[in-house]
Design a protein around this nucleic acid. Structure first.
Lengths: 338, 338
DNA sequence: CACTGGCACTCGCTCGTTCAGAGTGCCAAT
DNA sequence: ATTGGCACTCTGAACGAGCGAGTGCCAGTG
């Protein structure tokens, strides 16, 4: 029994099962693939594969389906990322280049991923703490009320309204604006806080309470992890496609998709390579029958956040990986330019 | 045959059917409700109700279920809005008061509505064109690049980065900031554009191209209907609850929930009263078996936008209406304060 | 005249049974 | 090592019977 052919059989099983959604038998296999051997031989190979835990039969006398372990082997050794068609790549490029701001980029990416893979897509907003400050703006609203605007290198904008204990005139506000920007522009958020706390000491003691308050508010905006946890989901309608052919329960999926914390766990740590999590390998019990394909993205190849897709373990891995990788790259490029 | 009792029977049918999800027969009715008559009598009433098109039987020799027309009558004449429990009202108040900005208010409202009604909730962002300008800020980023920040009375913040044909120094920016604010603060968005177009004529001819560009960008931000169409959806997991008990197809629901344009159609024109759309009364063919309960909200009782819930026609209308009304009121109050 | 009890009738649903088909494992042969 | 053949297993579809919920109608009663 040839080891190579055994793996060829596994690959064929995965491909057929993904395509048809039905357990695949020995006869069907030799019909659809040019294996050059008889069904009986394939049966022997199958028995061996089952022995190794790579495939299983739902019940006696049914075809075989791949196990999670089988998919893992397939992804690691038997498949290569399927290149996208020229049309698809053009579609990605034009769609993403039409985006007008960060929100829009994220929005469009989700749609794109969902359409390309026909799965549920998830895109995380760039993580705050690793980006740097591009500009800080102080806007007087009334005498004792100012708006702080924090603009980050990723294009993200955070704003806070602050009530001051004492009023500031325009000149003082302008001075403050200069000082703040001198202190933090170009700094990474994680470091900026340290520089900021020294600022109140520099100014006229009369205004120290106001400045302290402003600084506190700014630091708070910088470490706002609520914003870090923002993710956008799209393509939920695709759930229905494989939803009724059950096996994958839609209920827990829908619930997970509402819990952004869970989604972040699913996406995992951002790393620029494409990551595949199959079935039980994932961190969420309820989603043991789903897989996640994700990749990090961010300007200049530092992975600021992740995006990816979630679908049943029986998915088209090569295709999904290609789509995820392509979108991640394009989004990274856009962020580089912006 | 008493007309009153006939309506009581209809009410009982609606209530039972909503509770059990199963066609209700004459026997079950007299058991569960104190109608003071025998099943046979109820059967006669039922025959009459069916004659009038208010109820129907799925097939001969099954119980009755209300028709859309039956629900309509129930909502209009047989039910009163069920008051929320004190605990529920407290939950609404505390949750919404903890919100820190407009995004957060919208986010929390959706969750709240979904939890209270156990249906899918939809909240529309306040419509731009009817709100007014609170402040405009011009932030120099580099010599020939500025950030425009537009702050609206609803708390919404829009920003645009503009590349200028010529560079402006700080003094000129400050002057521009003053002029812009003088021109539009307090104006409604619809009117502000008219005032703005005159602005370029006021300034030094050298900077006229830059100012024109800024004004154009601002006008564009003000009339950004993309932002108008923003809606947030929550509680999708609730779909699964009644999803498998068929009759309501989840597929078109999920699809509709992704199409924000469709959702806006569903919510309809914002009016401060609670509106109920039952089944086919709605504007979307595919959702003929779902109902929408919605209400407008906005500061000082002008309805800026709508929020509501979507669910199967067999829903708890009094409860849903109460929840929608309560949330709409609380959100309005929050906007009033902010 | 409104209501009631009784009764025959209609279906949809559930359950058991049967049957065909797909697929397997094993064995003897090449 | 591979193959054809064969007996065996098991699922899923098809069928039919019987049950039960529910109805409509009718004759009887206050």
């Amino acid at each position: 029994m040839s080891e190579d052919r055994k793996l060829a059989v596994l690959r064929a099983i995965v491909e057929d099962y993904v395509a048809t959604q039905e357990p695949v038998g020995s006869k069907a296999l030799v019909d659809r693939h040019q294996l050059g051997v008889s069904p009986a031989t394939v049966r022997n190979d199958m028995a061996a594969l089952e022995e190794e835990g790579l495939i299983a039969q739902p019940h006696t006398s049914a075809g075989r389906i791949p196990t999670d372990k089988g998919y893992r082997l397939f992804v690691d050794r038997l498949s290569q990322v399927k290149p996208l068609s020229a049309a698809e790549r053009r579609a990605i490029a034009t769609l993403l280049e039409g985006a007008i701001d960060l929100d829009d980029v994220v929005q469009r990416s989700v749609r794109l991923l969902a359409q390309l893979t026909r799965q549920v897509a998830i895109v995380q907003y760039p993580v705050l703490s690793r980006s740097s400050v591009r500009h800080v703006e102080v806007v007087p609203l009334t005498a004792a009320r100012v708006l702080l605007v924090l603009i980050l290198s990723t294009g993200r904008v955070e704003q806070r309204v602050v009530e001051l204990p004492a009023s500031l005139d325009d000149e003082q506000v302008a001075d403050l604006r200069t000082r703040l920007n001198r202190a933090v522009v170009g700094e990474r958020l994680a470091d900026a806080a340290a520089t900021l706390v020294l600022l109140p000491d520099e100014v006229d003691p009369d205004h120290r309470p106001s400045v302290s308050l402003l600084v506190a508010s700014l630091v708070e905006a910088m470490s706002d992890h609520r914003a870090d946890e923002r993710v956008v989901v799209g393509g939920t309608a695709n759930l229905a496609r494989f939803g009724d052919s059950f096996d994958v329960a839609i209920r827990p999926m829908l619930e997970a998709l509402e819990e952004h914390v869970v989604l972040l766990k699913l996406l995992g740590e951002a790393s620029s390579a494409v990551t595949v999590r199959i079935g039980h390998e994932g961190p969420v019990q309820e989603l043991a029958s789903t897989s996640v394909v994700s990749a990090g993205y961010g300007p200049s190849d530092q992975a600021l956040a992740s995006l990816g897709i979630v679908g049943p373990t029986r998915m088209d891995y090569p295709g999904s990986m290609a789509a995820v990788r392509a979108v991640a790259r394009y989004v990274s490029r856009i962020l580089d330019e912006g």
